[in-house]
Design a protein around this nucleic acid. Structure first.
Lengths: 184, 184
DNA sequence: TCGGAATAGTTGAATCTTCACCTATGTTGA
DNA sequence: TCAACATAGGTGAAGATTCAACTATTCCGA
């Protein structure tokens, strides 16, 4: 996803090879002490199925949303705002809810602002803060697009699974989500 | 993921509002005929768990790989090449295997070539073709990094699930993957 | 109450991805 | 056999994401 660190290293005159930071050495030691526990073929199939399904799904949903000039990221923002009181959220809360960096959200909101979907409002309680607020156009857009998006999600995902499978999937992922959120 | 279509529309002087292509009208008709089948709260929880888990996982794995100057995309390429006879694959096959566009792969391979991880070789059988080939450095890199990456995948995903859950997950996703691949 | 630390958010530059277009080679059928 | 078409891959520009650095405000302890 990002090769910036490597390039940065190069720019700084450090090679991308194994050596350098203390934390890296610690990580390496932790693994070098023992024989790697490679994935069994079953584990590998599950892991690769997850990766493939996600990539293909996101690509397909993006395609379907393109019809309306939206990306899945745009859609996610619109949904979050539309479900919030006053159709507004603090930037940080929105960044957390959509699992992305504040910087990325800031750029994204700027683009959506330019497209007339949202507006920024400064927060009176905490003058450092900013609200992202749904505009009329944003609200109209999400209402119009939502049925189509749900249809896509059903067609390409939900309706291909049984209720039991969906429940199992949720039960399986929740610990993963909690684990990873605790690391942030 | 991509707002390009929307912007392009704007550039072309067409609005991003609902109207325009024939295919769009068809899609809209298909949905407008009936009341949208909204997701049940169970379905929604499953869908959102999938999305959250994937985002968090990819972010974490990227972080862990950054230690070695690689992205998950780089890693995936290296794995595919290292598992192929002669440590080489045709560009198109590699693009299919990693589920990305040829253009994106081409840029990616150029960057990895610059980093000394892979090389391009022209194909003698089909002179339109190109092989991406693992270099010594690429091979050394994947061998060195793989144990750490597997440890990450285990720590943040595999080891948090039971064998049954993994099997169910694979069984659930395979139809989705097949469905979506058939659409491409 | 003052000054340092923490928090909220933005910005610019570098990198990565997407799209449309382009070249070169191979395939096919009239 | 040769013209039309299809396939393999690359390229440049525009858009999206990341990282580090920055401003402005708030918090908090001495």
């Amino acid at each position: 996803m990002s090769q910036e660190r490597a390039r940065r290293s190069k720019r700084n005159g450090r090679s991308a090879s194994v050596s350098g930071t203390t934390s890296k050495k610690r990580v390496i030691a932790a693994v070098n002490d023992e024989e790697p526990r490679w994935l069994t073929s079953m584990e590998q199939r599950a892991w690769r199925a997850h990766l493939a399904a996600h990539k293909l799904l996101e690509h397909r949903l993006d395609r379907d949303l393109q019809t309306f000039g939206l990306s899945v990221n745009d859609y996610e923002i619109l949904v979050n705002l539309s479900e919030s009181p006053g159709h507004r959220m603090r930037m940080s809360d929105l960044a957390d809810a959509t699992i992305q960096s504040r910087s990325r959200l800031s750029h994204q909101i700027s683009r959506m602002e330019a497209a007339g979907l949202v507006a920024r409002e400064t927060c009176v309680d905490d003058r450092r803060g900013t609200f992202a607020v749904l505009t009329e156009h944003g609200w109209a857009t999400i209402q119009q697009v939502a049925p189509h998006h749900v249809a896509s999600v059903r067609q390409h995902f939900i309706d291909l699974l049984t209720d039991d499978q969906l429940r199992e999937l949720e039960a399986a992922y929740n610990p993963v989500v909690n684990h990873l959120k605790s690391l942030r």
